[in-house]
């Protein structure tokens, strides 16, 4: 999907941080992506350097942490591991499993200097 927009949003959040903290360079941008989310990590990497060029994040490394999918089954109430968004409950087979983790799209931390 629209990974260019996401990197632009990340740069805007980094600019916000620069108003709160003093730094001249961003060494690493750490993001958390849910495994069930809508962002393709490879596509994010693909456009990261091009979009950050000339911004406060120019030259930064992108570090992606993938958050595994997890859900709660509305039938048996178990917390189960999910490998896709619309999987049935691996414990009882019920189809309505609400995602409790794995949908993240979060800027987690910056390493700056």
């Amino acid at each position: 999907m629209h990974e260019v927009s996401l990197v632009e949003s990340m740069v805007a959040l980094v600019e916000d941080e620069r108003r709160r903290h003093v730094f001249s360079r961003v060494r690493t941008i750490g993001v958390q992506l849910g495994a069930l989310g809508h962002v393709e990590p490879e596509a994010l990497r693909f456009c990261f350097d091009a979009v950050t060029r000339g911004t406060i994040a120019d030259g930064a490394q992108l570090r992606i942490e993938t958050i595994p999918g997890q859900g709660r089954c509305s039938a048996c109430q178990r917390i189960v591991a999910l490998h896709d968004r619309f999987a049935t409950c691996p414990a009882c087979g019920h189809a309505d499993v609400r995602i409790t983790a794995g949908d993240e799209l979060r800027l987690a931390e910056l390493e700056v200097e």
């Binding site: 990340m10 805007a12 959040l13 903290h21 799209l105 800027l107 931390e109 390493e111 700056v112």
Partner: peptide, 14 residues
């Protein structure tokens, strides 16, 4: 002199 800033903000928060 690097340091880490914790942010924990949704990328789509704006």
């Amino acid at each position: 002199q690097g340091r880490t800033i914790r942010i924990e903000r949704d990328i789509l928060s704006k």
